[in-house]
Amino acid sequence: MSRITLTDVSRAYGQVKVLHDINLDIQDGELIVFVGPSGCGKSTLLRLIAGLDRPTGGTITINGQDVTRVAAADRGLAMVFQSYALYPHMSVRQNLAFGLENARMPKPEIEQRIAEAARMLEIEPYLDRRPGQLSGGQRQRVAIGRAIVRNPTAFLLDEPLSNLDAELRISTRAELAALHERLSATMIYVTHDQIEAMTLADRIVVLRAGRIEQVGTPLDLYNKPANLFVAGFIGAPRMNFLPVAVFPGGRGATIGIRPQHLRRATDGEPTLKAKVTLIEQLGSETVVHGDADGHRLLAVLPGQQGLKTGEEVALAYGQENLHVFDENGLRTD
């Protein structure tokens, strides 16, 4: 059992408030992702949950127990740091054993846990090497291993993939997903990359400037973004935003439509007319940059379109794919 609840949690440094009234309920066994731009407070929130930092307001409970004032070591959580934080002067085996020795676990049990984690993460050949002798990906697995051997209530991962190259990132992502399946453990994952969020998360928490913008499953966020920010954050390329006065009384509004939901118009459909400014050919699809009445527009069209810059193109869309946001940027339907 590992339910983590945050109630009115806030963190301020003097006058500067970094987190405002965070309320969140993390379910047992879910992989929840905190995502947002730099400085949104996601890492701070993670550290508050870990116990490395104390909130200036609010409470944190784990399985019903208030742990707001409890030391990090006693919360039963394990953290995987962005820089891995492996002890450079100890071997991998000693790194894994360190935390367990602190708990005065008997040697045989320590050995067993290390062996199991090593097998799971395929780091058996490296157990006697030093972190300095490992590659980035291997180090990352050791960092995860160090968390696994502790059998924690929940795993906290702070941007674990950001130090890896693109290809390794994709494979490691899959491994993390598999690991989550296997361990059925609660994982709180922090990242700035919305693709990682979309692919890994059971639920996503979108943060901006210390506030939660929206919490929901990936598809929820994709299909029904609650505001302009979330709509523009989730999905790549970014959703197109066009200002339109649609409400009676002439209040301003913004219409959003994803580039993937635009297609070449056939006759008789409502269209958007745009002048092509740039064409990016990816082979399987074409990204068309256009200018519609002074507004920038992107469309992702399937295949190779044979368009040329400067051409006028008519783009069609389905009504169901429109997102409407009022003058405050909030969703209206």
């Binding site: 990090a72 070591a73 006693d74 934080a85 492996l86 002890y87 360190f98 602190n102 160090r146």
Partner: peptide, 26 residues
């Protein structure tokens, strides 16, 4: 690096042990 000390904190290491096993060797 500061995060070594944070990792040790997460690992539940007592201050004396932090000194002998982490600070001093490094």
């Amino acid at each position: 690096p500061k995060d070594l000390y944070e990792a040790a904190e997460m690992d539940g290491t007592r201050p004396a042990r932090v000194f002998w096993r982490i600070t001093l060797p490094l």
